[in-house]
Structures are given as C-alpha cells and as structure tokens.
Amino acid sequence: MCEVVFPPCPFSLTHGSLTEQAKGDRPSHSASIGRTVPHALLEIRNLSYSLGGRAILRDISLDVREGETVVLLGRSGSGKTTLLKTVNELIAATSGTIRFEGRLAAEWDPIHLRRRMGYVIQDGGLFPHWTVEANVALVPRLAAWPPQRIAHRVEELLTAVGLAPAEFRGRYPRRLSGGEKQRVGIARALAADPPLLLFDEPFAALDPITRLDLQRLFLELRRSVRKTALFVTHDIREAMMLASRIALLKDGALDLLAEPREFRAADTPEARAFLAGLEQNGSAENWSQDEQRPRL
C-alpha cells in the first residue's frame, strides 16, 4: 500500500516501517488497483438510521478513497458520531449499505471488520488498568502477534507519536496529560496497521496549543504512513487543516461534499455559517496550504 513517501518522512524510522506491510499477514490493498470495478476503500450508499421514529441519518452516500482524509464536519447533534459508528458496526443502519475493502459490511465478521479500523475518541478511551504499552499493544495482542514483534511495534509507535518509550511505556493512563492520552490513543489505533482510521473529535477537549501539536502530528503521520481516515470534527479550522475532502452534515443529511478550497467558496447556508466562524477567528489559510494532499 504505502510505498514511496514524499516528502521524506519527518520521523525517520530506524527500524521497520510504521506500516507493517512487509509482514504479509493481511491482503494487499494495492491489489485493488488491478480490479475491474475499482471500489473506494469505504463506500457508504443511501445510508439512513432512525431511532424511535426519528431520522438521525438521512440517505447519506459517501466514498472514502485510499489515502485521503474525509472530514465529517457538522454541528453538535448533526449525526457525525452516529455515522462513524455505523461504519464499524457499533450501530446497525436502518437502510443503505456500507462496503469496506470491496466487501459489504454484512459480509464481514464485525470483530474482524473493527480490527481493520483504528478508532480514536475524544477522551481517548484508554483502559485505565493497563499501562501505555498494554494499551497500544491491544489489537496486535488480540491478533496474537509474537511478543517480540509486539514490543518492537509499541516502541516504534510511541516514538512516532512523540512519546519517549522508556519514559511512557510503563505509565498508567491516569498519569498522562490530555494530549499524551490522545497520542497513546492514536498509537493504539495505528498498532495493527489498519487500512482505515476513524477519529471522533479526538482533539476537541485539548487546549489550543496542544490541539495544534496533535493536528500537526496527524498530518505528519499521514505523510509517513499514508493512512486513510474518516475524521469527525465540529471545528471548521480543523476541517480545513486536515481534510482532503470535507463532508458537511446538517440534521443527519449530507449538505455538501467538497475539497477545502471548494468548500471556501460554497454557498449552502450551513457551509456559510461555518465559514463565517472561520473568518472571525482569523485565517486558516496557513493550515490548508502547507499540507499537500494525498494524490488520488
């Protein structure tokens, strides 16, 4: 899947690569290139979800292609979390289909499906009774990797998310700051090299400076490991900074799907409402430009 990385990866990993692709224990995604009907990594079609007669998601169709970051932007209550949860089958949609790696979600064993999607939530959701090392090692351990390989992987990942392994490996989550918790959460999500990352407002509870650090880390990691991500936020600046494409949700429906540049010129009332917030808080141009988007 991810081969040549340019510009040069900001963390030169001295041993191994963050993407584990050499280990040969999972199907290669580059195989999809040769397919006659190319599928996006994730295809959401006409997805609806109702709860107690109330429509929470309305007829959403959305593709997430390999290597891109689709940001789900919307107000609180617009259905972002619900949409994310239908993707890894934490919630069963009322109608519509989801296809992941070319296979219908219904054909997947949910456990197996979830292990191929890293998941990071706002407060980290780290296991409080496990050390940082055990937390990061979760999915590799579930997948029964040999202990040597797990230890090596944890070291590699902690380094990649900016936490000195010697200092942090043995710590318990309660002794981590909010930003460190999210770094560990990201390391845990990346651990078994899942093709898709699901992020639900992972930086929303952080102070602005730490948030910026983590957003930059996200961009750096994306350059180095070329991950595909579905990223939920209510923050237009964050969306502009991180997105390959922005999917704007309004009342459970897809209001707009656009690249950040196009989004800036969008004229739906909801998009304008978000853009107004952007102009008020100063320019975010700096963020959207320095990041070359993954080629599609």
Binding site: L113, R115, G125, V139
Partner: peptide
C-alpha cells in the same frame, strides 16, 4: 466503547 470498537 473503545473496547468494542477496537474489535474485542
């Protein structure tokens, strides 16, 4: 939620 989402 994390435990479920991580595939336990």
């Amino acid at each position: 939620e994390s435990a479920v989402a991580m595939g336990m």
